[in-house]
Structure formats: C-alpha cells, structure tokens
C-alpha cells in the first residue's frame, strides 16, 4: 500500500471518529444540563464553555458565548477547523485519496454523510435542529463503522483505518474526561456538594454512551472513582482508553510482523503503553487526574507521530 494512501486512511478513520465524539458531547452535555440538579451545571455559560473547550481546547476571553455562536461553530461553521462539518469534509477528502482501496459501499456512505452535513439547514440547526443533527451524525458514523468492518478486507487497509479510529477514540475520550473533570470541579458547592458524587460524572458516562453498562457493572450511582476506572481501565467497556489500547495493539501487529519490535518503533511504544495500563489501578489516577490526562495525551500524540514516521513517510 502506498504510504500517502495509508496516511489518508489513517486520517479518514480519525476524522470520522472525531465527528462522532463531538456530536455526542454536544448532544448529551447540552440536553442533560437543561435539568441538571445544581445551578452551576445548569448555567448556560458553564455548558457552552464546556462544549467549546472539548471541541477546540481553551476558549478565548473575548469569545461571545451564545448558543447560536457555539452551536454554529462546533456544528456547521466551515471556517472553524474543529467543526463537525470540517471533520466530515476532511474524512471525505481522505477517503477520496484512497478511493481505489476502499469499497464502493463505504465510499458511498461517507459521501452521502458529507452531503447530508453540507446541506443541513443552518438556521434550523441553531434554533431547533441540535438533537436531530447530532443524533444523525452519531448514526451515520455507526453506519460507516459498519461498512468499514463489513465491506473491507481485514488486511492492512482495515488495520490502518482502525488504528486511526482507536487512537482518535482514546484521544477524544480523554478530552471528554478532561472537560467533564473541570466541569465537576467548577460545579462544586451548593446542592451538589461533593466532587466525587458530582452530577457531571453521570453526564460524562452518557457522553460516552457508557452509562447503562456502567450501572450494570457497578450497580451503584457513579462516583469519580468508579467512573474513571470504568472509562479508563476497564478493558470490557468498548470506549475505554484501555479497550482502545488493546485494539491499537492488535492492529499494529498486522503492520509490524516483528515478534520483538525495535525500541524506537511505534509497535514497541504501543505495547509498552498497553502493558503499563493493564496493571494500573484507579487509586494511582485519582487525586492526580490532571497529570494523568496530560500524560496519556502526550503518549497518544507520540504514538501517532511514530506511526506517521514509520509508515506514512512519503
């Protein structure tokens, strides 16, 4: 496979995954805030700020935090690099570059998705369409994932797309955790006194579509500890960081056939990180969440860099 095309496939996977996480975060976080039990969690500024932070990192001071602005920028603003519209556009552009390698069915579903987003009525979206739009985005990405799994050979092409998907998934999940962690810190006090029992943890789980399964697993109201444990370390939770690392580890082995990959390789770093998290316990994370988030983000960037250097250098 061509190195350039591998790069396209990797980024296609990443952009699809990114679009989905942003859409879900927008949806769940906004709607759950409407009837949140404490004042802070209900406050517009608090929520809008959280949305922007998750999509694009720290928010400029002079940014006008209105629903219209925030929804439009995150959803359909073609001038914001982080918008869902642009994620889908880049996903399609990358799919275009690898068009001869992916199935017609997969291409068609990405293309349809792009035109759906491109032609979505912008006024409707910022006034009434938030739920409809974000739900459709999440559904379309599911369809695309289904096409990836069901219509491609499970060879290198598949492995590279899935590397992109899983690295992006881990990255986005960590970002969501980060955003909600700050929300929980900010929402302390008042009715919702305790950080560890903050309402934000429930929202966090819902953003990752893991609430129901979490309840089944722990049979208790989520706390900071159990939530972090479930979303970071539980290999059975499909969107946990650990699960993503397991997947990344499996897919890199399709590309790298060495039994003992060299010390500087992506495969080595992935294996090392995977092993490290396998034996991590949640008490080492709690109380040091910020450091932990920083570190895992750095590691994910480092992994992506190494993959680029080794496989996509054209």
């Amino acid at each position: 496979m061509l190195a350039r095309v591998a790069n396209n496939l990797f980024w296609m996977g990443r952009y699809i995954e990114r679009a989905e996480h942003i859409a879900r975060y927008l949806n769940v976080n906004y709607f759950s805030s409407l009837d949140a039990p404490n004042e802070k969690s209900q406050s517009r500024d608090h929520v809008l700020h959280s949305l922007l932070f998750m999509a694009n990192g720290p928010v400029d001071d002079d940014y006008e935090l209105t629903e219209k602005n925030v929804f439009f920028d995150i959803g359909l603003n073609s001038e914001k690099q982080f918008s869902i519209l642009n994620s889908i556009k880049y996903a399609r552009e990358n799919a275009n570059g690898a068009r001869d390698l992916i199935s017609t069915e997969l291409y068609e579903s990405i293309n349809k998705f792009y035109h759906f987003v491109l032609n979505y009525d912008k006024d409707f979206f910022i006034t009434k369409g938030l739920f409809d739009f974000t739900t459709q985005v999440a559904e379309s990405t599911s369809i695309i994932r289904g096409k990836i799994r069901g219509t491609l050979l499970h060879d290198e092409v598949y492995a590279i797309i899935m590397l992109g998907v899983n690295i992006e998934r881990a990255t986005q999940v960590v970002r969501i955790i980060q955003a909600k962690y700050y929300d929980a810190l900010n929402a302390q006090g008042g009715y919702d006194k305790k950080f560890s029992k903050s309402y934000e943890w429930t929202t966090l789980l819902k953003c990752i579509e893991a609430y129901d399964m979490m309840r089944r697993h722990y049979k208790k109201t989520p706390t900071s500890l159990s939530t972090l444990e479930f979303l970071i370390l539980n290999p059975e939770c499909p969107r946990s960081v650990m699960n993503s690392l397991v997947q990344v580890n499996n897919h890199i082995s399709v590309l790298n056939e060495d039994k003992f990959p060299g010390k500087d390789t992506a495969a080595f770093l992935i294996g090392k990180t995977h092993a490290e998290y396998r034996f991590k316990t949640v008490d080492t994370i709690e109380g040091n969440v910020e450091d932990f988030i920083e570190k895992i983000q750095d590691t994910l960037i480092e992994i992506a860099k190494k993959i680029e250097k080794e496989y996509f250098n054209y």
Binding site: L2, A3, R4, E156, N313, Y314
Partner: peptide
C-alpha cells in the same frame, strides 16, 4: 498514485509504500 508517491533512483521508478 500521485506524483509525490513516486521517485526515481538510478533510472528506475519506485513508489513509496508502507
């Protein structure tokens, strides 16, 4: 392929793969 995927060495043409 695109032009940037190919390069020439000693008058042979190669493509850059993974």
């Amino acid at each position: 392929v695109e032009g940037r995927d190919l390069f020439v060495e000693n008058d042979f043409v190669y493509m850059q793969t993974i």
